[in-house]
């Protein structure tokens, strides 16, 4: 048993094997970290295929949320999907920060819209296929190009705060 699957039970191992069987390039990219938790790192180009397989063949039909990560030169997106028995699959893929384009997953998970809008506002992701809608969660007059969850973003001090400092 490799270190990657310590703590996992037969169920998670079976899911890991099915993923690797279908997508051989995932051989060392899928880790079951403990019972009911599986993490997978995929290439951006393979993400949608893996996601669809996980939904349709492995039963991961519930989206918990989407996490955006600023990893320096890349932005990472982790899709936390789960199923009735509590096993949660976390699929991450990275895109270059200078062109952070991802595809919407609303056609698979309609509630993803609000999570994707959050990625747009806070991390500056560009979500292809997501229609017009109300922004979330920043104010309407938030300056363009300011993405507060990026690591290099620093809070600007207002004039009043500067005076009181």
């Amino acid at each position: 048993m490799t270190e990657a699957i310590v703590g996992a039970t037969a169920k998670e191992e079976a899911i890991r094997q099915k993923l690797v069987e279908r997508f051989p390039f995932l051989a060392d990219k899928v880790r079951a970290t403990r019972p009911r938790r599986i993490f997978a790192l995929v290439e951006a180009k393979d993400f949608e295929n893996v996601l669809v397989f996980a939904i349709q063949e492995l039963g991961f039909t519930i989206l918990c949320t989407i996490t955006g990560l600023d990893d320096g030169p890349t932005l990472g997106f982790v899709y936390h999907i789960t199923r009735q028995d509590g096993i949660t699959l976390n699929i991450q893929y990275d895109v270059p920060k200078e062109n952070p384009v991802i595809n919407t997953v609303t056609k698979y998970f309609p509630p993803a819209e609000i999570y994707e809008r959050e990625l747009i506002d806070l991390l500056g992701a560009r979500v292809e296929g997501l229609g017009e809608g109300v922004r979330y969660p920043l104010p309407d007059d938030w300056p363009a190009g300011e993405y507060p969850l990026r690591k290099d973003w620093k809070k600007k001090i207002s004039d009043t705060e500067a005076e009181n400092a």
Partner: peptide
């Protein structure tokens, strides 16, 4: 790690990424 909790209003989800320091790299709350 991804942590899930049944709050009174429903499922609460926290994702934490650690980088080996005393401060987290990322904390995500849903």
């Amino acid at each position: 790690a991804l942590s899930r909790y049944e709050a009174p209003r429903g499922e609460d989800v926290h994702y934490v990424k650690a980088n080996g320091t005393d401060r987290p790299e990322r904390v995500k709350v849903r």
